[in-house]
Design a protein around this nucleic acid. Structure first.
Length: 587
RNA sequence: GGACCUGUGGUGCAGUUUGGAGUGCACGCCGGCCUGUCAAGCCGGAGGUCGCGGGUUCAAAUCCCGUCAGGUCCGCCA
């Protein structure tokens, strides 16, 4: 991480706690910060560890100085080398200390309800209630600064590529479809509402029609969907859109930007970013966001069990994963895996412990083993390549389900903590245009209705829409979806065909997206774009498994903010002004 | 909307399985001692609606029901 804190001298301080060193010996300094700890040694000697965002420095003071934990003080004194034998090599400033100190209390403090020490764990709800104290912890300071470093390197990358930063409205127009939107009542037009944008998607397309050529923004997006470890109501994206570009141009630009960010944080650029098709990702990893840090790829056993007599394997697709040395898993653990698979929709999960057979071969141990023919047993062993001590897990189901269930088990069994290992970026391309059917039998847009179909599949829109691929692409890092983008439709005929496939009538489209379609009538350049989820990117670079650790003031899973108490009831007068009556469900 | 986990002095935990007096540990806090500590040390002290409500019982932190809060996940996230 680059920490260029040149000269931070102000009218109140001459240096920073963590920056005072042996070069400053015999210098007179004035430092400001918080009292991290105080160690008393009788009437006329005490040590104060003074903390600011750069670190700790030890101040030697008279025992009469009455300062306590988290007092804000300024200390003026002389930097001295520490006496022989008292150097603390656990401290960056451990070779020196501040002597002859004059201490001024700038603000007294009550004992903090949560420890500011990184080594002391605290419950997250307490941390969030006192987030301002939690943020003082070196760990949170580090995360906030990594986030800032990433932001600035992304901005620099975008500027270098000729992108223009434009701010788009937060008060936007409802476009029913997609994520649930946060509504904002209009005071001047009672009964009407703005919504907070799920993303600046439509705005940035209008910017392309507006001839901006290349737009970017570090944009806040808001979606009223249940929060998770990797999701908050509001989140931040590096949002971008460019004209006269295709998929490869966007992939190149975004790859370059995230490589810059990676280099800014870790000091080295990631290896060239792989690409795989959505179909490959599903078949090999059982997910559209593969974690490439480990193997355990899905193995297709459909051919082995074609026409099988084993009822459990009579399904369109039979797939497996091998858990190396998983044979030692007890029945309890295995049963839990079966439950997990069934919870994900599988009819069951078959398992085979691989053992040493007679005559040097391999044997299968499983409730199903006796039902397998010799050919099936050999086929299973050959296809999986499993060896003695391994555990083979098999799911037989419809194709998509078999893949996703095993993909889930693969991550569950083989996945590592977010912070572990290298950063394995991968582009997943050629997503399907549509995913499944809605209640009325219309295909559901996989990305959004403005996504350009794959050039080879335009004709499929009218005949077999579910087989049509799109020109959309996701960036995946270590199993986390970092962002997605697509080439957009700029031609009216293709847009009509997509709306038709989606079951959106001309009137419907006009009512919902009329402003965009209108804009497209006046000369829309071919354009494409992307959005990088910054919270997730920062979390991974910080080694965090939860994005709340990289957000200054996050909300809980039920959407409240323990610090402010939000959300709260509005005063009746405010409601009246907005023309709102609330209906609270009876308890 | 659903499943599971957690809730015990300011903080982190043990105690809950097998009901028997708010019992214990560590940190912090307050007071005292201490001139080279560095998560200082030693001595003493204060601090509790065992999340909340109900039930079972002679007796509930402990068992049962409900509820609230936090977390993980499913649904949801064009």
């Amino acid at each position: 991480m680059s920490t260029e804190d040149a000269d931070r001298a102000t009218s109140m301080r001459t240096s920073l706690c963590g920056r005072v060193g042996t070069d400053d010996v015999e210098e007179r300094v004035r430092l400001c910060g918080w009292v991290a700890r105080r160690r008393e040694h009788g009437e006329h000697l005490a040590f104060i560890d003074l903390r600011d965002h750069t670190g700790l420095v030890q101040c030697v003071v008279d025992g009469a100085v009455d300062v306590r934990s988290e007092y804000v003080i300024s200390v003026e004194g002389v930097v001295k080398r520490r006496p022989e034998g008292t150097v603390n090599d656990k401290l960056a400033t451990g070779e020196i200390e501040i002597h002859d100190c004059t201490v001024e209390v700038l603000a007294a403090a009550e004992p903090p309800p949560v420890s500011v020490d990184d080594r002391v764990e605290a419950d997250e709800s307490v941390r969030l209630r006192y987030r301002y104290l939690d943020l003082r912890r070196p760990h949170m300071q580090r995360n906030m600064r990594i986030r800032s470093t990433i932001n600035s390197s992304l901005r620099r990358a975008m500027e270098r590529h000729g992108f223009c930063e434009v701010e788009t409205p937060l008060l936007w127009s409802p476009t029913p479809e997609g994520a649930r939107e946060f509504a904002v009542p209009s005071r001047l037009q009672r009964g009407s509402f703005y919504v907070l944008p799920q993303s600046p998607q439509l705005a940035k397309q209008l910017l392309m029609v507006g001839g901006l050529d290349r737009y970017y923004q570090i944009a806040r997006c808001l979606r009223d969907e249940d929060p998770r470890a990797d999701r908050q109501f509001e989140f931040t994206q590096l949002d971008l859109e460019a004209s006269f570009v295709g998929q490869d141009d966007i992939i190149e630009i975004v790859s370059d930007a995230v490589a810059d960010a990676s280099e800014a944080v870790t000091g080295k650029r990631p290896d060239s970013v792989e690409r795989m098709t959505w179909t490959d990702a599903l078949n090999r990893f059982g997910t559209d966001k593969p974690d490439l840090r480990f193997g355990m790829e899905l193995i297709d056993l459909s051919a082995v069990f074609e026409g099988t007599g084993v009822r459990a394997f009579s399904a369109p697709v039979v797939k497996a994963i091998v858990l190396a040395e998983g044979g030692t898993l007890g029945r309890g653990r295995i049963d839990a895996l079966v439950d997990r698979a069934m919870g994900l929709g599988a009819a069951g999960l078959a398992w085979f412990r691989i053992g040493e057979g007679e005559g040097g071969g391999l044997s299968l141990e499983s409730p199903l083993a006796a039902h397998l023919s010799d050919t099936e047993r050999d086929g299973l062993l050959a296809a999986t390549g499993a060896t003695a001590g391994d555990l083979v897990l098999v799911v037989a189901a419809e194709h998509r389900l078999a893949c996703t269930v095993l993909g889930n088990l693969r991550v569950h069994l083989g996945g590592q903590a977010v912070g572990d290992g290298p950063h394995r970026f991968v582009w997943v391309v050629e997503f399907p245009m549509f995913e499944g059917l809605d209640d009325e039998g219309h295909p559901i847009a996989a990305h959004h209705p403005f996504t350009m179909p794959h050039p080879d599949d335009v004709a499929l829109l009218g005949t077999d829409p579910l087989s049509a691929r799109s020109q959309s692409y996701d960036l995946v890092l270590n199993g986390w979806e970092l962002g997605s983008g697509s080439v957009r439709i700029h031609r009216a005929d293709i847009q009509s065909a997509v709306f038709r496939a989606l079951g959106i009538s001309v009137e419907d489209a006009e009512a919902r997206f009329g402003f965009l379609l209108g804009a497209f009538r006046y000369g829309a350049p071919p354009h494409a774009g992307f959005a990088v989820g910054l919270d997730r990117l920062v979390a991974i670079f910080c080694g965090e498994e939860n994005i709340r650790e990289v957000i200054a003031f996050p909300k809980t899973q039920s959407g409240s903010d323990p610090l402010t108490g939000a959300p709260k009831a509005l005063a009746d007068s405010a409601l009246k002004e907005l023309g709102i009556r609330t209906v609270v469900p009876e308890k």
